[in-house]
Design a protein around this nucleic acid. Sequence first.
DNA 1: GATGAATGAGGTTTCATTCAT
DNA 2: TATGAATGAAACCTCATTCAT
Lengths: 201, 201, 201, 201
Amino acid sequence: MSAVDRRKQILRAAARSFALFGYKATTMDQVAKIANVGKGTIYTFFSNKEDLFDEILYKVILEMKMLAESRIDRNSTFFENLFSVLDALLEFRDEHELFIKLSQEVRDVGTLKAKEGLATLERVILDYLEREIAMALERKEICSCDPQVAAFVMFKLYIALASDFKYVREPLSQVEIHHYIRMFLADGLANPNARPVNIPN
Amino acid sequence: MSAVDRRKQILRAAARSFALFGYKATTMDQVAKIANVGKGTIYTFFSNKEDLFDEILYKVILEMKMLAESRIDRNSTFFENLFSVLDALLEFRDEHELFIKLSQEVRDVGTLKAKEGLATLERVILDYLEREIAMALERKEICSCDPQVAAFVMFKLYIALASDFKYVREPLSQVEIHHYIRMFLADGLANPNARPVNIPN
Amino acid sequence: MSAVDRRKQILRAAARSFALFGYKATTMDQVAKIANVGKGTIYTFFSNKEDLFDEILYKVILEMKMLAESRIDRNSTFFENLFSVLDALLEFRDEHELFIKLSQEVRDVGTLKAKEGLATLERVILDYLEREIAMALERKEICSCDPQVAAFVMFKLYIALASDFKYVREPLSQVEIHHYIRMFLADGLANPNARPVNIPN
Amino acid sequence: MSAVDRRKQILRAAARSFALFGYKATTMDQVAKIANVGKGTIYTFFSNKEDLFDEILYKVILEMKMLAESRIDRNSTFFENLFSVLDALLEFRDEHELFIKLSQEVRDVGTLKAKEGLATLERVILDYLEREIAMALERKEICSCDPQVAAFVMFKLYIALASDFKYVREPLSQVEIHHYIRMFLADGLANPNARPVNIPN
DNA sequence: GATGAATGAGGTTTCATTCAT
DNA sequence: TATGAATGAAACCTCATTCAT
């Protein structure tokens, strides 16, 4: 196997383990076993556990950024863009979701550097959302609110439905997630005009 | 200092540390230092780390149960009751918030017993919410949706606003939280009739 | 209760626990509980665990010395004296046995001082036996052998029958012990003249 | 050094320390230091202290069983067989002696499993001896006695001479041990026909 | 003087990291 | 270069000893 393949395999294994068990509970032995490489091999590519973590973080940030930018169309409405990006995210859900969990476990990551890394990603996402929301406000597409709070709620709502939910009930399909985000974010629960959720299955 | 005070001090310190750093990352040395007691002292009150954790968990479950039951009025509407309980929870925010974080870190808690404890609490809350939502649906107070999803979203929305938010921005006041939950849950962002948030300060 | 009574109670409790569980496995909490006094009380009489141990040791040494001396009659034969002392020891078996165990656990006693204490007692007993055996040899009462080895075997044989045996089978009565010591020590297993053991029960 | 060598070194060090200081008083630090390995290295071969102890126990049980079976000859007399096994045991004295001590410290071993392990070994040895003694009784090779008591005394006598003795005096040679066991067990101290001990040295 | 809650040194065990092969 | 055995810092927990009541 090539060195590049090995590296990717380690990254994939680590991402999977970090997501499943968190930063502290992920042991290098576990990563090595999942990646099917020797433990020492990890250290030929990454100088330590934190570095490995950071690289995964950085990759996800980059992917998300590119993905979002490729979907935004300045001629579309806020909600059209939001749902377009949302659908793109959901297509790679398995991959990103692995990460999404980590943002909730910031507190477990011992080192300052890793903490900052996670904060960075969250900040990148929130900043982007805030700008979009601010623009939507100016165009009166959404009702008056603090863009910071709105962005944060969107972010958490997405994570809750796309990832957290399956830990307590059967996981939601892409269509269901899409629908519920529209229901809670756009229309409101008390809105009598809200369309009922149509679950295809 | 009296024994009861010491016990409380340890509980407070542990709750604080569990909430800040998670279960695994909380060391008994740390708890001892925060509580300003010797490490051994903790073990005179709690037989081990898990016991300490369980006691905090149990106390929170009890408090929340009592609090919710005291606020529900069967003659009031769903949203009236929801906001009444919400306000009660927010009054003790500092105390409960400590716990709320833990529910996000279930996966990091090593022992089965602790895991089950956390799952229990979340399940208690969700079950309660689902029943209330199902009743509201029958009375047509809210629009058609899966009560399980709606309950889950409410739960996560509360945690996001009351607790998570302050890790990225200035914390929200009780009034703001109240208002945003109404906005996202009841009225919807796209609703032109939604009242703007009035921050007293 | 008087201070002297308290002191005795602690000594008795400690002797019991040392004998049952050994030096290391005996905790001061345990001694306090058995003695029905506060843990701190022990430290008003004994400066530390080792001191408590030493005192018990010293007391037993004294008792045994006095007991042996009171039974020895220079006009009697070696075996008559041996069995006389033996019977005296067996009368206080419960009390002494508590100690006897300790001589086997010398290796568990962490501190040099305690180790030396135990060695002292064993040495006192062995020296006494050696002198008696040497005298018996001169009088041709017993067959040619190294008094050091003979003394040691006598000592161990006594402990084995009077104390160790009950950990694997039903404990032996005083009469049985007496008889078996005679059989193994004086007559020999292969001796056809040896009288069979008459167990009264 | 090879892994197998390291493993053996740890076993040897642990056996030595268990024998010298007992189970509780043997620290993993001590074993590591004696074995000249890092503390963690022990845990690459044995999952915990008890496992390390059990392995030593099991090995000794096996060795003793095989050794005894290889020496027993049904056409020989009881004492011939006894001394044959005895000599075989004495050849590996250093190795077995390490264990023998442990049988005296059963009471200090905290865990049930270890306790049972030690009891098992003692029981195996005693059962074997009892059967042999019962057969000897039927053939009138030895005088009337309880086989349980006789077996126990033989066991303790062997331990006393082969192991315990050197803690109070110069250790006995193989020939001396052989001779004294014959003297005390077969002939009796008071037997005028007993041959004097011939120490070759 | 008696007490037992409080303490921290020292025990077992885990795991990120190193390094000889 | 890839490996995994070896390592020791740091975690949890016990218990002899102290000291405020």
